[in-house]
Nucleic acid binder design. Sequence first.
DNA 1: GGTAACACCTCAAGTTGCTAGAGCTTCAAG
DNA 2: CTTGAAGCTCTAGCAACTTGAGGTGTTACC
Lengths: 144, 144
Amino acid sequence: MGARTYSIGEAAKESGVKVPTIRYYEDIGLLGRIARSDGNRRFYDRSDLSRLSFIRHARELGFEVDAIRTLLRLQDDPDQTCEAADAIAKARLDDVERRISSLKLLRSELKKMMHECAAGRISECRVIEILADSSHHHGRLVEP
Amino acid sequence: MGARTYSIGEAAKESGVKVPTIRYYEDIGLLGRIARSDGNRRFYDRSDLSRLSFIRHARELGFEVDAIRTLLRLQDDPDQTCEAADAIAKARLDDVERRISSLKLLRSELKKMMHECAAGRISECRVIEILADSSHHHGRLVEP
DNA sequence: GGTAACACCTCAAGTTGCTAGAGCTTCAAG
DNA sequence: CTTGAAGCTCTAGCAACTTGAGGTGTTACC
């Protein structure tokens, strides 16, 4: 039973990661060595596909490539405690919480702003006014 | 009474925009012509400072530079209706709402993940497992 | 008046996570 | 044998800055 292999296009379909993105992930070292055919085409096996799905899923959850690199190293080394993986997930959760609350602040700012704008002329537009009002400043409402 | 002027460093302090960022904003045409001293140093007057504060505040609220460009044009032209400004603010509000709800989804995913992880070894770590589980996929949880 | 420290200048390149394009090769089908 | 799709490499571009190199101007102190 020869193990099935996949072209980059098939790998893209299976994993949900686009073709150029797969090549990019290889470039930045997320995938390790990928086998090549005689005609210099990449081909992938099942384990490559799971790695791709792993990466895609983690990216969907907003993990940065660097965090994913670490998670992949952990995955490759199943005897370690999952403390490190836990810490990464926790950091991500904290980040998400922070973003949510700053976006909520933002939302109320924007709502207030729009609510007060009575569709008149710019000279009395609250949107513009509030933006121009330098007394009106908080820290970073939007994350970097 | 000669109108007071400010060096770029002072302008940075007053407006809360960093020095290189001020130069950058000038480069991309957000500030118009900035006066120069004999020794080729930029100097700023009060109106430059308000423009900078305006930009900073808008950026804090997450408006893109292009939107800010439009808002600044509107501000310079006080006889227009504020419809356009309103539309920009509304688009931003919609964007913020979208982000909030996708982040909330994300948060519950992450919480579930961490909750199930019983601090054991990687081989049985739910964080890693869930990420690896390709059946576990939704659309874009995170905005582009 | 000299000199040291510091703010300022310009220009180029790096950041993040890809995406898009040009220009070429390889492969499978008809 | 030809055509068209899919592959290849390499480069450049996006947003909104930040960082760095290498040079000039200004100010404070002795």
